[in-house]
């Protein structure tokens, strides 16, 4: 699996810190897309109160990332810089969920797209195919 993220942060002063923000953002975005969901029962009790039930991204859920930049100087501040905090989280969920909807052939896929949710989406694809025949 390959993951490439290209951002425009204007002038990058400390690439090490900036790349860290992109890495973290991507991981959090993947978490949002596939793993992390707060679930409440009908009485309003949080049932994902520990990591036994709330799924945090782990190292083995993710690949290493290729990170690169396009630099367009920001005209409204003297340093030419833009924000980059957790920037990876913007495109990551979209990229992941688009891949899933593309694979299953319809857009009825919830976030987080857990194994069960993807399984249900695949069942629906089969039904839709049958109905179309």
């Amino acid at each position: 699996m390959k993951w490439t993220a290209i951002d425009d942060f204007g002038i990058v002063i400390n690439p090490m810190i900036v790349e860290g923000q992109v890495h973290g953002g991507i991981a959090q975005g993947v978490g949002q897309a596939l793993l992390e969901g707060a679930v409440y029962d009908k009485h309003g009790q949080l049932v994902t109160g520990s990591y036994m039930d709330y799924c945090m991204p782990r190292a083995d859920n993710l690949p290493s990332f290729n990170v690169d930049y396009v630099v367009t100087k920001c005209p409204s501040n003297p340093l030419g810089i833009k924000g980059c905090g957790e920037a990876g989280a913007i495109a990551a969920p979209v990229a992941v969920v688009n891949a899933i909807t593309n694979a299953v052939g319809h857009e009825d896929v919830p976030m987080p797209a857990t194994p069960q949710a993807v399984w249900a989406a695949v069942q629906k694809s089969a039904k839709l195919r049958k109905a179309a025949e």
């Binding site: 793993l35 990591y51 709330y54 799924c55 857990t114 194994p115």
Partner: peptide, 11 residues
């Protein structure tokens, strides 16, 4: 084994 994604116990 298909692990529970959160706890990694067996689903």
């Amino acid at each position: 084994k298909f692990p529970n994604p959160a706890s990694r116990y067996a689903l």
